[in-house]
């Protein structure tokens, strides 16, 4: 087996046995179940509330897992010095990082799938009419998780987890505020603010681009082209962050 895939497999096994991950997944499932309780607040809009809160819960949980678990993934190996014996094997640093990334990405996909199955089950109990936009929201949340995960790799290849978490929260908040900031900049008609908004769009990934949760609530249809464009956009940002991660990680001394 390719050494990168061996590392990916090992990463899945490592995280699968990590109690912190279980706590976070449990937290996510509680949020989904909570959405069912919240739906009782409204008789007419109960399905809509369940979808809205359920997706928000899944979204929040997935991003928290990406950032908090992702931030320790490389750090743990270096700090515990298990990296010393692993890197003595015929394995490049690029393969090691990519193996870790692939492993965690696949694990995120499986966690997301479990949560969506739970939400789907709850919605089916509420006589919800199935709609194509639910799987699209699933794709959107996963793409956002991948961007944040690759960001944790970029920062985590040189910094401690606390710094990684702070930077990622900054990117998460600004990434979801880019559209609002742009609207404000246009309304203000200030060239400086418009310049600033353009600048941020180049340096921060627009995480609202993959927010298709409202499309599920309002039963909107997202075009296939739109999905592919966002997937391409995600791929670009992931690649960009991973290139940064690898270039830092390759130069690092494991003292």
């Amino acid at each position: 087996m390719n050494p990168m895939l061996v590392i990916a497999q090992s990463t899945i096994r490592e995280l699968y046995r990590d109690r912190i991950l279980y706590v976070l997944v449990f937290f996510g499932i509680v949020l989904i179940l909570l959405s069912l309780l919240l739906s009782n607040l409204s008789i007419q809009e109960n399905v809509r509330l369940t979808i809205d809160f359920g997706l928000a819960g899944i979204h929040l949980c997935m991003q928290v897992i990406s950032v908090f678990v992702g931030s320790t993934l490389i750090f743990r190996e270096v700090e515990k010095k298990s990296i010393l014996f692993v890197m003595s094997y015929p394995l490049s640093r690029l393969q090691f990082l990519m193996g870790k990334f692939i492993g965690f990405s696949l694990l995120l996909l499986s966690i997301l799938t479990i949560m969506f199955v739970i939400l789907w089950f709850l919605l089916s109990q509420l006589e919800w009419q199935n709609h194509i936009s639910l799987p699209i929201a699933y794709v959107g949340i996963y793409l956002e998780s991948l961007i944040l995960l690759s960001l944790t790799f970029a920062i985590g290849s040189v910094a401690k987890p606390i710094s990684v978490v702070i930077v990622c929260i900054g990117f998460f908040l600004s990434g979801h505020s880019l559209n609002s900031f742009r609207e404000l900049a246009i309304k203000s008609k200030s060239e400086f603010y418009i310049f600033l908004s353009d600048f941020f769009e180049y340096v921060v990934p627009n995480l609202e681009a993959m927010n298709w949760r409202s499309a599920v609530v309002y039963r909107e249809v997202i075009s296939v082209t739109g999905i592919f464009q966002v997937a391409g956009y995600t791929f670009f940002w992931c690649l960009f962050f991973l290139v940064i991660a690898v270039s830092f990680f390759r130069r690092r001394d494991f003292v």
Partner: peptide, 25 residues
């Protein structure tokens, strides 16, 4: 290579660990 005071993948069992390292080689 065996590092000084090695830190291995201690979430694995001894058997899983050896299999992992042999796969990695």
């Amino acid at each position: 290579y065996l590092p000084e005071k090695p830190q291995l993948y201690d979430h694995l069992t001894g058997e899983e660990f050896l299999k992992f390292t042999l796969e990695l080689s």
